[in-house]
Design a protein around this nucleic acid. Sequence first.
DNA 1: CTAACATTAGTAAGCACTCACTAACATGTC
DNA 2: GACATGTTAGTGAGTGCTTACTAATGTTAG
Lengths: 210, 210
Amino acid sequence: MSIPAAIPVPKQRMPSGERRAAIVNAAIKLFSQNGFRGTTTKQLAQAVGVSEPVLYMHFATKSELYSAIIETLAERGEQLRSMAARADAEKLDDLAFFRQLAHLLTAWHREDPSRIRLLLYSALDGHELSEMFYQRQVVPFLEVFAAHIRKRVEEGAFRPVDPLIAGRAFCGMLGQYVQSIHVFGIAQSEQEQQAALDEMVHIFMNGVKK
Amino acid sequence: MSIPAAIPVPKQRMPSGERRAAIVNAAIKLFSQNGFRGTTTKQLAQAVGVSEPVLYMHFATKSELYSAIIETLAERGEQLRSMAARADAEKLDDLAFFRQLAHLLTAWHREDPSRIRLLLYSALDGHELSEMFYQRQVVPFLEVFAAHIRKRVEEGAFRPVDPLIAGRAFCGMLGQYVQSIHVFGIAQSEQEQQAALDEMVHIFMNGVKK
DNA sequence: CTAACATTAGTAAGCACTCACTAACATGTC
DNA sequence: GACATGTTAGTGAGTGCTTACTAATGTTAG
């Protein structure tokens, strides 16, 4: 009985780029769980499945790796912006648009909770790239939102609210709720979450419309 | 030439309680700035103005000190609850009440930003007392708020919103705004802050009222 | 064969924490 | 008031362990 050829034996030797990506992914996971200082290079090497010096072939120092993962995550944050922009282009009515954005934001963080945790960790650490992370992860989403509000205010459908403040208000409600789940560990069932989001969307809608 | 008697040499020797309090205060400051792991016992001792063993006369381990400061801050959190409850007892109209709470929350964090930072740090660290901290710092405020909403819903002044979700929505808007200032370092002038709070209060008010 | 990928076995520095000891105060006795 | 006595608050100089990082060397794909 021959062993089928395709057993995916974990590759021991990898092309440089792949290995680098593997390190970044492991680092995102560990740093988001334990923080930068709470993660040792030894742990990290074990998680990647290599020895410590391999890490230093790809990144000169541990904090260079920290910077690399923040940049990686910031880039991925562009996805959120484009998804939000796409929702805006769909010409949904206000309610559907707000619900769509709420869903986007929660799904985004549920799919990978390490993002919000690392965003907070890096901000608390005062990391030099933390502002860039915030600018590319949070602000774009907020801007798509604010742009929609501005338009609807001009069209006379909404009260003359400040679009940016209104955007902060909406994203704040959602963001804090997401945070209480993924950072503070408040347990919420799928239904509870859906109900909460709907209610928040409604409160906001009624709050801004004429 | 005699040296005048009354040179106020910083007290070198302190009663146990005072010294303990001094250590806790220094720890709150340093931990909130650099995190638990980012603060060394050496730094801490220097900040207090004593040698390291003194720390260990009051706290058996560094993490026991961590627990002590969380407890201390959680206790101080009761103040916020009582201030909120007092505002409720004043029988203000809805708008004034919401504004009062918004002011309370922002003033509370502006007065001492270490609270929100430590709350986040402890949650990210998964500290055993973090949930207690959240329960006593966040939840009480939320409950005073939810109670008010519930009452006004019953009186028919507000739409039949879920009081707890509405509370989370309002505190979320405010909380995230405060966080963006004290954690993410978004600069906001006194006027901008006041304008933002007013707008948020209005959006919420309109969002829940009939 | 060799260049790139990996490992074994370190090093120096920093960490939380401790030991042996001393200075300052409080109190009771004369 | 002066002095001995027990207690509390403090220190200088470490300990052993962990950490980020590295030099010397092995191994395998192309």
